[in-house]
């Protein structure tokens, strides 16, 4: 299992699409930094992963004023402790930027 970390929104650049294309069925995706803006786009393909495989870093969501929007999406909000734990639990972490 691989942890994919995405730090840019689906609306800019190639990173979001590349992250999804590299993901195997068992992998998980964590949105950090500007990646959390993905919660604004309900149509984004990544939402199909669901809260078991799609996480967003709560600090970055909160800092950008997206808490209520994120809570309405199928994304699990996690803290930095969970980010670290995920990197330890998964075999590999890949950052998409």
């Amino acid at each position: 299992m691989i942890l994919h970390v995405l730090n840019c929104p689906p609306s800019s650049g190639q990173a979001a699409a590349q992250a999804l294309s590299a993901m195997a069925p068992g992998d998980v995706l964590l949105l950090i930094e500007d990646g959390v803006y993905a919660v604004l786009d309900a149509e984004w393909e990544g939402h199909r992963l669901g809260p078991e495989k799609l996480y967003a870093l709560e600090d970055d969501v909160h800092a950008r004023g997206l808490m209520s929007i994120a809570n309405a999406q199928k994304v699990a909000l996690v803290g930095m402790e969970t980010f670290v734990a995920l990197t330890a639990q998964t075999r590999q972490t890949i950052s998409w930027y």
Binding site: I2, A24, Q92, W96
Partner: peptide, 17 residues
């Protein structure tokens, strides 16, 4: 193809992007 790309990521010991 897309499956082979995924397999490349799954199979590598180390990855630098």
């Amino acid at each position: 193809d897309p499956n082979e790309v995924q397999a490349l990521f799954q199979g590598a010991e180390h990855i630098l992007v």
